[in-house]
């Protein structure tokens, strides 16, 4: 099963909508609630990253008996140094975004903690693809 949800860059009033849809979907599919709780954290952080940094993105969810694979691909500025971006506390968010309580440099570390496998591919001035895998067993 495969599902796609669009994410609008720059529009914080819709941030979390895609994550909320996926959460509903996982509940309908009877995924273990403890797993849903973890996945939701990773989904939301990845979605907010697209809203805060990119122009547009798609959250792609592939579900089978073994795993939930979520791929969030955006068109945006990309990440020049992924290792630096993974460091807790590092952020390139704007002052306006920080004032809202985002941009504390906790997003990517939160994603890493809340999925089983994380892959980040990025090309500067093109975009970033974050793949998060959660095993079901």
């Amino acid at each position: 099963m495969e599902f796609n949800y669009e994410i609008e860059g720059g529009n914080f009033s819709h941030a979390g909508t895609a994550s909320s849809e996926v959460k509903k979907l996982l509940k309908q599919l009877n995924v273990n609630p403890a797993l849903i709780k973890r996945i939701v954290v990773a989904l939301y952080e990845a979605e907010v990253n697209v809203v805060a940094h990119a122009y547009e993105g798609v959250m792609n969810v592939v579900f089978d008996n073994n795993a939930i694979v979520v791929k969030i691909a955006d068109k945006g500025p990309g990440i020049p140094d992924i290792n630096l971006a993974m460091q807790e506390g590092f952020s390139t968010a704007s002052p306006a975004v920080r004032e809202m309580g985002f941009g504390a440099g906790m997003g990517l570390p939160n994603i890493k903690k809340n999925c089983d496998e994380l892959k980040i591919e990025s090309e500067v001035n093109k975009g970033t693809t974050v793949t998060m895998i959660t095993h079901l067993n």
């Binding site: 914080f12 009033s13 941030a15 909508t17 954290v41 939301y44 809202m100 985002f102 504390a104 906790m106």
Partner: peptide, 26 residues
Amino acid sequence: LLSDVMGNANEGNVWLTLQTHKNIMA
């Protein structure tokens, strides 16, 4: 800090904050 709440708050918690924008509801 929204990511702090996202990462560390638990179901059924009451959240105390000075943030007033819509994202707190998400």
